[in-house]
Amino acid sequence: MRFGFSYVGLIYLIMLTLPNILWTRNRPKDYEKYAGNENGILVALERAGEILVSCLALIFSDFNIRHWSAWSWWLVFSFLLMVCYELYWLRYFRSEKTMEDFYSSFLGVPVAGATLPVAAFFLLAVYGRNPALMAAVVILGIGHIGIHLTHRGESRRG
């Protein structure tokens, strides 16, 4: 693991943050009804994961583009997941913005708004051979995907 600025990490964080900023003004109908019931442990894991992933993605140069090798495919697949994440958001912003729209699958990936970026950052960690980011992404994934699955289940029950 090599300390240094990661422009790839910055690009990923921008791709992650911009749609979420737009989402704050386009929340699904009845979202507040479910947000108040979040499991405290999942919320704590999500918040810790968000902080860790954001910091680690920026402070290790391991994630920057290197010479092409078979290992580079990890970065390609990771970036494709981030592109899918952006496409998921485009579909959401064009929808009626219901809970079902927000917690929908995209290209067969369940709760895509949570799963796609977590998977993308995990593959980025694999590409960078960075166990610190891998661990942070697992923490984030447990919290973030867990919350989304819970909300999806609650919204389906009504």
Rank of each mutant, 00 (worst) to 15 (best):
V83E: 11
R129I: 01
H151R: 08
E38I: 10
W89T: 08
R129E: 12
V8I: 15
L149R: 07
F121V: 12
V43N: 09
Y12M: 11
A48E: 13
L124F: 06
L52T: 09
I14P: 11
T17E: 11
W89R: 04
W74L: 12
P131I: 09
V43P: 02
K29S: 04
F60E: 00
G128Y: 03
I41Q: 07
L124E: 02
S72M: 11
R157I: 04
C84E: 05
S95C: 02
H151S: 08
L133D: 12
I21S: 15
I147N: 07
L56Q: 02
A112F: 01
L140D: 08
G128H: 09
C55Q: 13
R47D: 13
W89L: 08
W68I: 14
L75G: 07
R156C: 00
A135N: 03
Y12R: 10
P28C: 05
L87W: 03
I139Q: 07
R25C: 13
L45E: 05
A132W: 13
S69M: 01
A114S: 15
A70P: 03
M82I: 11
V138D: 07
V126E: 14
R94P: 06
H148A: 11
F122D: 12
L58C: 12
V53I: 14
L10H: 10
D101P: 02
L16I: 15
M99F: 01
Y103C: 06
F77L: 13
G141H: 01
K97C: 03
V137R: 04
V8Q: 01
Y31G: 03
E32P: 00
L18V: 15
M99I: 03
T98H: 03
I145H: 01
R2V: 07
E50H: 13
A125V: 05
F5E: 09
V76C: 09
L81D: 00
L116E: 06
G4S: 11
A35S: 15
R25S: 15
F77S: 01
F93H: 07
V111S: 08
F3Y: 15
V53R: 08
P131E: 07
V109Y: 02
R2Y: 13
S72D: 08
Y103R: 03
I41W: 11
Y31L: 05
D62H: 00
R91C: 06
F5M: 11
V76G: 04
G143P: 05
G49T: 09
T98S: 14
L10K: 05
A44D: 04
V83P: 00
M1T: 07
F63E: 09
S155I: 07
G9Q: 14
I11G: 10
A135K: 06
P19Y: 06
R47Q: 13
A120V: 06
S61F: 00
N130W: 07
V126G: 06
S6N: 05
H144G: 07
I147D: 04
G141S: 10
Y31A: 11
T17V: 15
G141P: 08
A136F: 10
R94G: 13
A132H: 08
R156F: 02
R94V: 01
L75F: 06
P110Q: 04
F121P: 05
S155K: 00
R66G: 11
E32R: 06
